[in-house]
């Protein structure tokens, strides 16, 4: 059980500042997601928590106590690697027992602990198999079991499911969330997939080039992104951002100082009329994505169901009440009008 806090942490590698004055708090038992593009500092944060790297400035606290000078082994934080790093020549059981055997825990204690973890992860029936004979999801669970068996205060995952195919990813992320809820341990999770981040996390930090842009619940960040960067990172298709000059054509009025207008595709209303033209209709079954051309700007709208629109059709656009976002010239969000 542990909360994790960063206080103004900076980490440089040579000339590159990988983590730049970062502060955040992860409360006990949270499923916390570090989200951002590759090389934005997420993985370095994990290494700092693990103790594999030491911060150049600032302080890291685990359970309120500074961990400066405490080595990786004493922090009792576990890690599940991206490639899972299971030992191919050992059975699932031997893989899971490994951390305890290495620490010379008494055999009866090992057996009890392994049984407890395996029951929670529903992997009792596959323990005799080597990793090669397990499915992607099963391997995942074995790797998690190995991380959890030594009863860490928190466990970290670095992009653990990006290698799975789309369908399996959807299943596994739900599974991960269930496991985390049942195990009740702080989980810090790194991903660059926005859907995955929003699906699993109850708290998240959005990274850009070593800095945190915004922290909060996924829902909160999705609804109230504080910049065009964050707005663009969450949601697919991404938020439409157009110059304020087009606000009138979208029947929106902006506040003072607004430079650009942001509209999520699901908040853009498309109706037969004048002003814009459909350039593409992409029916996805339950949803339809429509691209429209508005005075040379391309906008995307996501509509429910399978509405009958055709390419080239003239349409009128509007925005759901209260769902327009406004940004100033620097890209920072302004209070809604």
């Amino acid at each position: 059980m542990a909360s994790i806090s960063f206080r103004n942490v900076t980490k440089r590698f040579g000339d590159v500042t990988a983590v730049d004055d970062v502060s955040f708090d992860i409360r006990d038992n949270a499923f916390f997601c570090l989200f951002g593009p590759p090389l934005s500092g997420k993985s370095t944060i994990l290494k700092l928590i693990l103790g594999l790297e030491k911060p150049d400035a600032g302080e890291i606290l685990i359970d309120g106590r500074p961990v400066t000078g405490i080595g990786p082994a004493q922090r009792n934080v576990a890690m599940v690697f991206q490639n899972l790093a299971l030992f191919p020549h050992m059975s699932a059981l031997d893989n899971i027992r490994f951390p305890l055997v290495e620490r010379r825990v008494a055999p009866d204690k090992i057996a009890a602990r392994v049984a407890e973890v395996c029951e929670k992860l529903h992997i009792g029936h596959i323990l005799h198999k080597p990793p090669a004979q397990l499915s992607g999801g099963e391997r995942q669970r074995v790797a998690i079991a190995r991380a959890l068996v030594r009863d860490p205060v928190a466990y970290l995952m670095d992009d653990p499911i990006s290698a799975l195919d789309a369908r399996l990813r959807e299943q596994t992320r739900v599974e991960l969330r269930r496991i985390q809820q049942e195990m009740g341990k702080t989980l810090v999770y790194v991903t660059h997939d926005q859907e995955e981040a929003m699906s699993v996390a109850d708290g998240m930090a959005v990274f850009q080039a070593g800095r945190i842009c915004q922290t909060g619940t996924p829902e909160d960040i999705y609804r109230h992104p504080n910049s065009t960067y964050v707005a663009g990172m969450l949601g697919a298709p991404a938020m439409n951002v157009v110059p304020m000059a087009l606000a009138a054509s979208l029947q929106v009025q902006g506040p003072q100082g607004a430079d650009s207008l942001g509209v999520r595709p699901e908040n853009l209303r498309v109706a037969p009329g004048e002003g814009a033209r459909i350039t593409e209709v992409e029916p996805l079954g339950g949803f339809t994505t429509i691209s429209v051309d508005l005075a040379g700007q391309s906008l995307r709208a996501t509509l429910r169901g399978q509405p009958r629109f055709t390419t080239g059709q003239p349409v009128a656009l509007s925005v759901d009440a209260g769902r327009a976002h406004f940004f100033d010239t620097s890209g920072a969000a302004l209070a809604a009008h």
Binding site: R177, R178, Q194, M198, G235, P265, T302
Partner: peptide, 8 residues
Amino acid sequence: SMVERIGA
């Protein structure tokens, strides 16, 4: 059994 909120 679970609620997954994924943006829209």
